[in-house]
Design a protein around this nucleic acid. Sequence first.
DNA 1: AAAAGATTGTTAAAAATTTCACTATGCCCC
DNA 2: GGGGCATAGTGAAATTTTTAACAATCTTTT
Lengths: 217, 217
Amino acid sequence: MPHRKYERIPRATISRLAIYVQELEGMERQGVKVVSSEKLAVSCGVNPSQIRKDLAYFGEFGLRGVGYHVFELKEAIKQSLGLDRTWNVAVVGVGNLGRALLRHGVLRKRGFIIVGAFDCDPFKIGEEIGGLEVICSSKLPEKTRELNVEIGIITTPAERAQRAVNYLLEAGIKGIVNFAPARIKTPPNVAVEYVDFIHHLFSVAFRITQSQAKGLI
Amino acid sequence: MPHRKYERIPRATISRLAIYVQELEGMERQGVKVVSSEKLAVSCGVNPSQIRKDLAYFGEFGLRGVGYHVFELKEAIKQSLGLDRTWNVAVVGVGNLGRALLRHGVLRKRGFIIVGAFDCDPFKIGEEIGGLEVICSSKLPEKTRELNVEIGIITTPAERAQRAVNYLLEAGIKGIVNFAPARIKTPPNVAVEYVDFIHHLFSVAFRITQSQAKGLI
DNA sequence: AAAAGATTGTTAAAAATTTCACTATGCCCC
DNA sequence: GGGGCATAGTGAAATTTTTAACAATCTTTT
Ligand SMILES: NC(=O)c1ccc[n+]([C@@H]2O[C@H](COP(=O)([O-])OP(=O)(O)OC[C@H]3O[C@@H](n4cnc5c(N)ncnc54)[C@H](O)[C@@H]3O)[C@@H](O)[C@H]2O)c1
Ligand SMILES: NC(=O)c1ccc[n+]([C@@H]2O[C@H](COP(=O)([O-])OP(=O)(O)OC[C@H]3O[C@@H](n4cnc5c(N)ncnc54)[C@H](O)[C@@H]3O)[C@@H](O)[C@H]2O)c1
């Protein structure tokens, strides 16, 4: 079957593919060699058809009557997502969260190399964190280009997010992951994702409230 | 119109309501008193009908011909989400990320009070961070009940997440926000949310790859 | 006080996504 | 090598979610 390259791929599919990769890696560590859509579905908490459908957007990776080879499927998904290469990223805002990111190894392990760390606080500039020197954010456009940054990670306070984004846009950034709790304005050709952990707390609080309300009725 | 309390409310609606609150707070700071669904939609990046529909799940908050009163709408949404009260939360895993959360004021400002910080590392136990003493995670069930924790935040490494969750479940926790990149098993009456920032990086990488591929064709 | 203008709440239509059901295909055992 | 079993891939159906359209109603103007 030809790969459906021209079909629009649901956002939800991409986020599930990331979950599949995660679970496949777990299985790999446990020495599992082959897995069925049924089994993978259970461990990802989704419907088996959903998995098969999601994969069908990119090709055929399974063996009928058998299942999927864990390692191969993981590699195939990663390749489909564009993760069979490394990506240069920059962190803008070296506060509590920015530091946590710089110190955390998981990014590099996943192929996202932090090549720049920027802050506007003179006390932070020059400091070394996770093997990187903090650079003045006035040098953002220049350095972003120089370091060949493709993705920017915003960890400034909310009210500074747009300014930081503007600097990145100036340098022709292609994608942004925004941790600041503020919507940002970007041209349509820039991929933006929001990591909004407060929203998840809201959601949990709501669901608890709701299930308690239901219990009372 | 009666509130549609018995209708199932889409997950996506809840997450948008959180965005509305965010933007309404921004408008409030700028002194905006009244806003139309049209204007709010622009600043949230959604469709105006979507906003009116989302709000309709909970009641009527607007004034035809006028719009919504910013402060009142914000309060009404927060009340609908169960945020018109405080929630006791506990952080499990006081590493880079756990520390960032403990030091960050935004949680408290939103009504989520961190009442407990747990870690299994003997070198961390007893340390004071953000005004809280780090407690040994073996005391989790006991302390969780004692402190009346309702929501647990998991910031342990992925392979420890399930263990931490089990402790929380033992204590009858109602909701969990999991930052560790691992799916966790919980009974259906526990609300679980995943904050998976790597997924957002994956998504950005994919969208960049895709738009570049499109450009080449 | 009526008419015009604006904008909500709501119903209907459209679009997107998920799930189901079935067909095709591969492996294993006899 | 053929039959039975398992499971991927896929087209259709069901469901959910989003968008559009419009009647209801509030404010402002004349
Ligand atoms: N701390 C957390 O656990 C956490 C969790 C989720 C989201 N967030 C969000 O992430 C953001 C950062 O949180 P934090 O706790 O690290 O805050 P922080 O105040 O510790 O750090 C913010 C940093 O951004 C820098 N900064 C400000 N304006 C800048 C600019 N224009 N260019 C470059 N750097 C600039 C500041 O100097 C500071 O170092 C906030 O928006 C916060 O809401 C934080
Ligand atoms: N650092 C980041 O920026 C970042 C961002 C997103 C997600 N994460 C995820 O968050 C988690 C924590 O990241 P981190 O950088 O803080 O790691 P870390 O190694 O700095 O901290 C983990 C902490 O958990 C503690 N711990 C381990 N097992 C425990 C248990 N059973 N009970 C209680 N505490 C336990 C450890 O002692 C350690 O203090 C990881 O799963 C990571 O993938 C981190």
